[in-house]
Design a protein around this nucleic acid. Sequence first.
DNA 1: CAAACTCCCTGTTAGC
DNA 2: TGCTAACAGGGAGTTT
Length: 294
Amino acid sequence: MPELPEVQAAVDYLRKRVVGCRIIATKILWGRSIAKLSPATFIRRLKGCSITEVFRRGKYICAALSSARSRESQFLFIHLRMSGSVDVLGSKIPVDPYDRVIFELDSGKTLRFNDVRKFGKISLVNEQSVITDNLGPEPLDGKLTDKLFYTALQCRKRRIKPLLLDQAFLAGVGNIYADEALWSSSLHPATLSHQISEESARLLLAAIRTILLEAISLAGTDFGDGVVSEGMYRPKVYGRAKSQCYRCGKGIVRLVVAQRGTHICPHCQKQKKSSSQSTGLRRTRMRRQAGKGN
DNA sequence: CAAACTCCCTGTTAGC
DNA sequence: TGCTAACAGGGAGTTT
């Protein structure tokens, strides 16, 4: 599942291969991969545009476009969601069954948006803000200080894991790196944000950054010859249920928090008891079981 | 305001 | 062994 580091790798890959290219034609093989616009409009508005820049914002791949005709610029925002990927291939390479959108470039190559599960979306907008206004700060941006992060946590009363996953709160962190950062800073995923101490907040932000940077350095190695390194971040807790915790040796447990699979070490990540919270959870669980029985 | 729930999809996997 | 049902997961939208 692409999160910030994987999206950054895709951006680095694309930047080298498509910046300066002109889009000659676009083929849409799955209409719902395009957000908002009809396929015909999408194709028409892209025709003849040049790609001037490729960058990342949150989990979006962004391509800035300029048109020879109209002076106004456009932006292509690609969200890979669960299973999306991008490739730049020779135009003669056969279409893959999971290719959803193909952009034909004047370089003789094609930019292919491939997406098995069809969750990915491509938006074409005139203003970046249409997309970016809904995004929180970049976790690696120095302007996000410890103080600002701590204050942001204090302003909310939400469980820390779903808060980290909320792209309007922080842009780019997904399920895997949220679990990893919480384990690293010894926080239970259901800890309420306003109950996190300033010191814990500092450790959490540091953990997020360390983990993202490590994953970027591993996932993002592109040797420029079409081979992208397969070195991958090795999770400490994510997907390691029933394995031993690297810190204390006890068993990793998988639970569900906010409808998301969540992996923790119950020994290292203890939750401070909050009475209203535990009763709330118990009620939910009882209601679920009652529903299943019918 | 927080959080649960639903939907979108299909490859993988647990269970029979 | 072969089948089916459950499951995973990001994010938008809806309901509690």
